[in-house]
């Protein structure tokens, strides 16, 4: 696959197996700054493994991943961790907020890990909670808020560091239609205004409809529908 010029994150010919199970079998991917790309496909097709490889969480067995001109696959664990903290944001299906921390502390956490003083981190966290329309929950713990509210807090946490890429793995999978829709609206609006690219793994067409284009993963291989048509 030849990546189009100006791509921020490019993967080529990725292969990854877990024991005898082949998860990726020559998958490719590319995304431009500020672009929202849906990764679709049936369960077990390899789409989550693709996301984990792109985000530097999982190292592929072979193939290359290039982020902003740097080869991700050649980086050390520490370098990839630093990249994830500084440049990437994450939203998962079940929020994965820290239950002992309040919502504002959860959102401020990535900034604190990067060395931002507490007061400044929480000020910025509150700004994001406001943008996600959940500033009234700042002092509450994740166990005290609804699923939809928790996901908004998770989106705020993903965007608080000003990431260039947000990885969202089934971000509305645990929500009803109305809440899921609102989370998608807020996520995509916030990402667009911050010019962050979004890699959106989903099997739901209504969620994928918030993307600019989609790639389909099947049996570990990907198909870029924009360039296929």
């Amino acid at each position: 696959m030849n990546a189009p010029a100006g791509s921020l994150l490019v993967a080529e010919d990725l292969r990854k197996a877990y024991g005898p199970t082949v998860a990726l079998d020559g998958a490719g991917f590319s995304i431009h700054p500020g672009e929202i790309v849906a990764v679709m496909g049936p369960s077990g097709s390899g789409k989550s493994t693709l996301l984990h490889c792109l985000a530097g969480i999982v190292v592929p067995d072979s193939g290359t991943i290039t982020y902003d001109g740097r080869e991700l696959t050649a980086m050390s664990d520490a370098e990839r961790s630093a990249l994830r903290r500084g440049e990437f944001g994450f939203v998962f299906q079940f929020g994965q907020l820290v239950p002992e921390l309040t919502c504002v502390e959860n959102v401020a956490l990535p900034l604190r890990l990067n060395g931002t003083p507490r007061r400044e981190a929480e000020r910025r966290a509150r700004t994001w909670l406001e943008r996600l329309e959940v500033d009234d929950l700042a002092g509450q713990r994740p166990g005290e808020v609804s699923g939809g509210q928790g996901q908004r807090v998770a989106v705020a946490r993903a965007l608080v560091t000003g990431p260039r890429v947000v990885f969202a793995d089934e971000p509305t999978g645990a929500l009803d239609s109305l809440n899921g829709e609102r989370v998608m609206e807020l996520l995509t609006e916030a990402a667009r205004s911050a010019n962050a690219a979004v890699v959106l793994v989903t099997h739901e067409p209504r969620v994928a409809a918030y993307s600019d284009r989609e790639i389909v993963v099947r049996d570990g291989r990907s198909r870029d529908m924009e360039r296929a048509v």
Binding site: A208, E214, M225, V229
Partner: peptide, 11 residues
């Protein structure tokens, strides 16, 4: 796949 893409375009 092509049909899915067309549906998504409309969506």
């Amino acid at each position: 796949d092509t049909q899915r893409s067309e549906h998504l375009r409309m969506m």
